[in-house]
Structures are given as structure tokens and as C-alpha cells.
Design a protein around this nucleic acid. Structure first.
Lengths: 239, 239
DNA sequence: CGCAGCTTTGATCTGGCTCAAGAGTTGTGG
DNA sequence: CCACAACTCTTGAGCCAGATCAAAGCTGCG
């Protein structure tokens, strides 16, 4: 069953971002962060490495160049919750913009590379550049919209609907970025998916098995194939 | 038992916002939206009236002057989820900033008044006014932080913890605004609280009864008294 | 090879949901 | 002012989705 794994990371670095224009996306539509006129540089990270941590002084925002991350928030009791899985083109660290320090942790799920955009020069440049200003606001607003969607998902749907929404969301994002939306490899563990969806890892595993039994997807460990996108979407309205 | 109801609304309009400076807050800290140099006007709304609806063309942001609102998102199947309860000083409508139309509904929970800040002149003014620019970003970032906290709450805690968090959150916000943090009236129904917390209304009612039995709060319909703030906070870590 | 971490699957338990009844509250019109 | 209707809230009983506990497979790495 160990069939042709998708070299997602490699493909990513070949096609993204198109010419210094990291593509960013919070919810449904796209927004670009045009940084070609702003100071920035690349930084590679190893799998498991932390890019920033809650409480760190805010000094840059980041665009994922290739690879993938998890963004987590932690409560007083150390309970951790994944709240996003940025992939190539997504922007990270915007939550630091309010209070001068980040409010979440960003950890690489695989060997990855980010585009570091120091905030001071970005802000300086935004003073004159109206479109850059607009884009920044747009990025922030889209993240709000994404989070509102997440709140809706967590507040009002069942395990099966959540997992289906997760798969469809990933699939859509891969399509937007030019990868296969029908066949991809998960970079995160069942436990991380569970945290993201407010479920236990066993439940995630069971739901995946159940979706597979019904012929909607094929699951082999980390590899996911979407066999019946319409059927999967139908699960959203059911569960 | 119908003892001295708190005239929250009236007090609100007397003390907020201080001198055309609606106070806004997304999560823990404050941010101000300085609008004294920007076009704006007041608009009263009756209980139940809708200020904006998802899909409406975005053209203004709003600061609650007095009264209270619920902000809801709705999914494809018409499932509605409350994602915020803005009160005096809070800003609404920022999610419209990204795509040109609002992505949520805002409904008055009681007769209220908002400060309408048309976006075009606000944006125009922000071009030169660096502090206004910063404040706008700050507001957006704080809303992201608030939403992340909400995701954490919905994803990783139990019914009791959620209700306790809701009460503590409200209490803190009332304190910040100069009202009693120990004795207040809820403007929303049990069903709306349930929607906000991802619980059914019966569960909200039961949890409130249970907290009351244990002497942490006193509940009489809409009126809430926090009898043991520390004890209530302890529930957060437990549930 | 052997161990550690991840995933699947089974069995059981339980917190919160569902269904249902009744009490309290608010608004309306006579 | 009262009576009635429409809500809203509380409380009980039973049930079920998802959590918890437990035991194997798989994978990958030293």
C-alpha cells in the first residue's frame, strides 16, 4: 500500500512563492503580501523547531515559503490547542501586531523555510504605500474570518463534520496552490488534528476509517486520497 | 427576589465612551479608536434590530456606545453560532475589512446606540496619521487574539469551564468599563450563551444552577452575582 | 534487530444532548 | 387592572457520541 508518496515539500519550494510574492490566505480568498520592496530574508527550520513562542517579543511576520507549521495557543493549565496549520504561502505571526508580543506558538511540522519580514521596515514602508497598508489590513481581516469559521466549526458541528471540513479545507488550499487536491500527505499527527478539531486522536482515527469504509476517501497512514469530493462535502451538511 | 436591577444601559451612556474615544477591546488589554478627527455619527438601534448582516457591503466600522450586541456567523446549513458579545466600547465590523463585505451578523440585544465610523474617510485619514494606522492594526490583531482564545475555549474545555470562563470574561469587561464586576444583568438568553459556548441551553442552565449550589455565584434569571471570584476562577482550571 | 512513537481497533464509561414537563416572565389587548 | 399567549428558564429521565482505557499493528530510526 506504500504507493508513490507525494513530494509536497519539494514541489512547494519549486513553485512557491511566485517571485517574492508570498501568497497569504486566511479563509477563502487570497491576499498577497507584496514584499519585494521590503527588507526580508529566508530562514530554514528543522522539523520540530519553534519559530516563535507565545510571549516572545514581536518583531517580524513570516510567510511560509515551503513546508508546514502548526500554530498553537496554550491556556493557563498548559492545555494546548492547535488553531491553524499554515502551509506554503500562508502568513504567520500577525497576532503579535496588537500587543508587541506573539500570542501563539509556531512550530515546523517538517523541515521548512520561512520568509522573515521584519516589522519595523515593513511598517515604515506601509506609511507611504497605500496598497501595502491595505494588504496588511486585509491579511488581518482574513485571519479574523478564518478564526470565526473555526469557532463556528468547533461550536456547532459533530466529529464527522469536523474531520470532513478539515480534509476539504486542506484539499482546497492545496488546489489553490497548484498541488493535487485529491491526493496528499498529512504532515501532522492524529493527535494534532484532534487538537485542531477539538477531538481526541482515537476519534479522528475512527472517523477517517469510517469515511474510508464508505468510499469517500482512501487513508493509508499519512496519505489521504479524496475519492468522492461531492460525497465528502455532503458529510459537512450532515454531521 | 426581584432586587434592584442594574441600569447598565443608562450608566453606560453616562460614562462611555469618554469624550468621543470609544474604547475597544478584543481580548485582554485595551486599544482606543481615536475618532475625534474622523467623520462619524450616532445611530440608535432597537432591541433585535440588525446593524449589519453577513454579505452586506462593508462601508463602516462601529463602536458600541451603549447597549450590547451579538455577533453571529452562520454556516451553509443555517447553523448559527454567536462568536462575540460586544458591549459599550467594543468595536464591530472589522471582519469586513478584508473582502469588502461583512462576514458576520450584528444584532442588538437591547435598545442600543452605536457610533458609526464610515470607512472611506477613516482610511483616508489613516494615510497620514500613523497612530490611527497603528490603532486600527491593533484592533484587528486584538480581535484575532480574542478569537484564538475562543478557539482554545471551545476546543479544550468542558461545559463547566466554559460557563465559568464566560462569566469571568463578562465580569472582567464590566470592571474595565467601570461597572460592577460582581453584580450584573445578562442581556442574552441561555440559548445565546449556549451558542456562544458550544453548549445547549439546558446545559448552560444546569451549570449555572450547579455553580449557584456551590455558592460561587447567585443566579436569578438574568441577574448574576459573583459571590466567590477566586472559586469561580478555580473552576477554569478544573473543568 | 529493537525500541519509540504513531495509528488502528475494541470495550466500556460518561458528559452533555434530547425529549418532555412545568414554572416563571414579559408583552398585549381588552 | 387582569387574562392570556408567547417566551424563557429550570429540572428530570434516558440515551448516545465521543472520551477513556487497553491492546495490538506499523513505521522509522539508531
Amino acid at each position: 500500500m506504500r504507493a508513490t508518496p507525494q513530494p509536497i515539500t519539494r514541489t512547494a519550494s519549486a513553485t512557491f512563492p511566485p517571485r517574492g510574492l508570498p501568497q497569504a490566505r486566511g479563509g477563502a480568498a487570497h491576499a498577497l503580501l507584496p514584499i519585494e520592496n521590503v527588507d526580508h530574508f529566508r530562514r530554514p527550520l528543522r522539523r520540530g523547531e519553534t519559530l516563535f513562542r507565545s510571549g516572545d517579543r514581536f518583531n517580524a511576520i513570516y510567510a511560509v515559503h515551503c513546508g508546514s507549521f502548526k500554530i498553537c495557543v496554550v491556556d493557563g493549565e498548559g492545555r494546548e490547542q492547535v488553531c491553524r496549520f499554515p502551509i506554503a504561502g500562508d502568513v504567520m505571526g500577525l497576532d503579535g501586531l496588537g500587543g508587541g508580543h506573539y500570542e501563539s506558538d509556531a512550530v515546523a511540522l517538517e523541515d521548512s523555510e520561512v520568509c522573515v519580514v521584519p516589522f519595523a521596515p515593513l511598517e515604515r514602508r506601509a506609511r507611504d504605500d497605500r496598497s501595502l497598508q491595505k494588504n496588511l489590513c486585509s491579511l488581518l481581516a482574513r485571519e479574523i474570518i478564518h478564526d470565526q469559521g473555526m469557532i463556528l466549526l468547533l461550536g456547532s458541528s459533530q466529529a464527522e463534520g469536523r474531520v470532513a471540513a478539515f480534509l476539504i479545507g486542506l484539499s482546497d488550499r492545496f488546489r489553490q496552490r497548484g498541488y493535487s487536491s485529491r491526493d496528499f500527505n498529512l504532515r501532522m499527527s492524529r493527535a494534532e488534528i484532534g487538537s485542531y478539531l477539538g477531538l481526541k486522536l482515537e476519534t479522528v482515527s475512527r472517523v477517517l476509517s469510517s469515511l474510508a469504509e464508505r468510499g469517500l476517501v482512501a487513508v493509508d497512514q499519512k496519505r489521504i486520497q479524496i475519492l468522492d469530493p461531492a460525497g465528502l462535502r455532503r458529510v459537512l451538511t450532515t454531521g
